[in-house]
Design a protein around this nucleic acid. Structure first.
Length: 674
DNA sequence: ATAGGGTTAG
């Protein structure tokens, strides 16, 4: 027997039992044999195409497909499926339409792929037209097709009319549309209506048989569109139809309890998951991590994560986000490093989740590293990431970089506007902040709850009480935002700082307590997390500074730094220099029962001064010094640092717990109001 | 054919 005839026998054997091929490698080997021993009949070629498309091997499939003059149904079906499964949705649809123009009728297991393509291309009209095709062919009784239709309508539920997505109408039976029509660039039908719930219900009711997938699809659709009660009702209905919730059901339901901050119900689901061995499921685990994090139960998030034997990128993202949102920044950064060590590639979500940790901790070097990673990864144009970068640079003291990133952004949403406004507010540039707020309004971006907190912060740091009142009054009048606890707090703070104590008392007395009760559950949980963060911060006053990519932390009176002797010398030296400039220690704040000399020494070793002296001796002359302090800078240090900035001729930026101070040439940007 | 994670505040 020649080697060719052996090959031919081999190929024929496989063609009779195509499922005996188990690996891509085997499939590729078969192709070699096949090409050696051509020609074959169109039906044999089609079988081979179906084998390749099952392995999602697009190119060999296309190669064989193109060799056919009039491809049979199986060949078309395989190509449509292969295109859809490899993300080439437009090609998948074009191919389907082409097939129709050849007069070939689709079979039921073709529709799920075509409908999936419509979902990805956000082309509702095309989907509807395919639905029509399904009905005309009498295939709407098919379970898989029905489920795919449910999925399509569920996904289109969330698409707003005129929401920027492109929709185009054409009839599948009208022949071939042009490419640009399929992707909808002509967009004649932008006014596509929101798919009403009853559309989905109708499809569901028409289905002669429903399985768990049908229910899960509808439940997920409702859950993702904020129709929580409807979703939960469907879960009960599913149970009435004698169908057991599975891991898909649970991972759709968990985010609802996360949003409701209902840890009791969330735990019940967790229990159910454990009893049914679903708790090691990626999807459920990340929903559980998120649910616990939303309920301010970060310890429970961590236990879920730790019990996972395998973790995917989303598991990592979930736990990192959970830590950062709960103010456990160090742990978040630690996990981020572990994620990199585990060679899990960070994604866009990873960066926007971790960035606030750098912002809060003022670790500029880390933020910059992440920024570099973001640029290399091509994530620059992601709104979430850009907003978090604006925030990070502003909070790390570099308002110019923050503004630069903000200006680079193609579109600004309310979050990015708020981030930059808050940035200017924290730096004491109240007028820039308020100007940006006006620009935002002119841009047609509606401010939200948080934007007004930024506005009041800006007014507060500049003592602009009248402006603040104007904004406070217009907030509900012009934008329908009811003032909440945070706004009252910011206003009271502002009046207090401005010395208008009477007004502040009166204002607090007039507070609408009802407005807090009306706040969403989620905000209540956020408030709890915030309180927790404050509670955790029981450590003494401390300041930190980054030198050569390392963070050096100092507490008041701290002698533990290896360079303490040199720091002490530098402090003494600085003291002498500023005393020549007229500095007199202001020992009125904080103490009693301490003699003057001791007082002088205690003030002398305040944490920000230790950090400052260290910064001066360990960086080249003229370098800007950035210090972060966990509590407010005291009056005496403020005076001293102003003078130090003059005598050492350096710009010194101190961020305390409420704002930035830029010291230069003996002056501070806060104009001594903070 | 169905499911999970993100930015702005105090």
């Amino acid at each position: 027997m020649t080697s060719n005839s052996t090959a031919k026998t081999l190929v024929k054997t496989f063609l009779r039992t195509p499922h005996s091929l188990k690996t891509k490698f085997q499939a590729k080997q078969l192709l070699a044999q096949f090409l050696k021993t051509q020609p074959y009949s169109p039906s044999s070629i089609s079988i081979l195409i179906s084998v390749y498309s099952n392995f999602n091997l697009l190119h060999p499939s296309l190669f064989l497909f193109n060799s056919l003059n009039s491809p049979p149904l199986l060949a078309w079906k395989s190509i449509v499926k292969c295109y859809a499964n490899s993300g080439h949705f437009l090609n998948s649809l074009t191919c389907f339409v082409q097939m129709r123009s050849f007069g070939i009728y689709p079979d039921p297991n073709m529709f799920p792929f075509v409908l999936k393509a419509c979902v990805f291309l956000k082309n509702l009209r095309l989907g509807e037209s395919i639905h029509g095709c399904v009905i005309r062919l009498g295939l709407d009784f098919d379970l898989f097709t029905g489920n795919a239709l449910l999925n399509m309508y569920a996904k289109f539920q969330s698409l707003q009319p005129n929401g920027g997505h492109k929709v185009f109408a054409f009839n599948v039976f009208d022949g071939m549309p042009k490419c640009d029509e399929l992707c909808g660039t002509s967009a004649q039908e932008k006014g596509a209506s929101i798919i009403q719930l009853d559309r989905i219900t109708k499809v569901l009711e028409m289905m002669p048989k429903r399985d768990v997938v049908s229910w899960n699809t509808v439940i997920a659709g409702n859950a993702q569109n904020g129709m929580y009660e409807e979703a939960l009702r469907m879960v009960r209905e599913m149970g009435n139809a004698n169908m057991k919730p599975d891991s898909f059901t649970l991972s759709s339901v968990l985010p609802i309890f996360a949003e409701y901050v209902d840890v009791i119900k969330g735990k019940e689901i967790h229990g159910y998951a454990i009893r049914h061995w679903f708790d090691s499921d990626f999807y459920i685990a990340s929903s559980l991590i998120d649910m616990y994090a939303n309920c301010a139960r970060i310890e429970d998030s961590c236990s879920v994560f730790n019990l996972l034997s395998k973790r995917d990128d989303i598991s990592w993202n979930s736990i990192i986000a959970a830590c950062v949102q709960n103010g456990v920044f160090d742990e978040g950064l630690k996990l981020f490093r572990q994620m990199l060590t585990a060679e899990v590639k960070p994604r866009d979500v990873t960066f926007s989740s971790i960035m606030p940790a750098c912002a809060y901790l003022t670790t500029l070097h880390l933020g910059k590293q992440l920024h570099g990673y973001i640029i290399r990864g091509g994530f620059n144009d992601n709104m979430f990431i850009a907003s978090s970068l604006v925030d990070m640079y502003a909070k790390c003291g570099n308002i110019k970089a923050a503004r630069w990133i903000f200006n680079q952004m193609e579109h600004h949403d309310m979050v990015s506007w708020t981030a930059i406004i808050m940035g200017y507010a924290l730096h004491g540039h109240a007028h820039d902040a308020l100007l940006l707020f006006k620009q935002m309004e002119m841009d047609g971006v509606k401010p939200n709850y948080v934007s007004y907190i930024a506005v009041f912060t800006a007014c507060s740091h500049a003592g602009l009480t009248e402006e603040a009142w104007r904004y406070f009054n217009s907030m509900s009048r012009n934008h329908g935002i009811k003032p909440g606890l945070e706004h009252y707090a910011a206003m009271a703070d502002l009046l207090g700082r401005a010395g208008k104590l009477e007004e502040a008392y009166e204002f607090i007395g007039s507070m609408h307590t009802a407005s807090t009760a009306a706040r969403r559950w989620k905000d209540a949980a956020k408030m709890r997390i915030f309180m927790k963060k404050k509670g955790i911060r029981k450590e003494p006053a401390c300041s930190w500074i980054e030198v050569k990519n390392r963070v050096h932390t100092f507490i008041s009176g701290d002698k533990s730094h290896p360079l303490y002797d040199r720091i002490f010398e530098a402090l003494k030296d600085l003291l002498e220099q500023i005393e020549r400039e007229g500095y007199i220690p202001d020992t009125n704040e904080d103490f009693h029962d301490v003699d003057e000399e001791q007082k002088k020494y205690i003030i002398f070793s305040h944490s920000e001064r230790l950090a400052l002296a260290f910064g001066i001796i360990s960086t080249p002359a003229g370098t800007t010094i950035r210090i972060t302090k966990n509590i407010r800078v005291c009056v005496d240090c403020h005076t001293a640092i102003k003078l130090i900035s003059k005598v050492v001729q350096r710009e010194i930026i101190v961020r305390d717990n409420s704002r930035f101070h830029h010291f230069k040439d003996g002056k501070c940007s806060c104009r001594d109001y903070w």
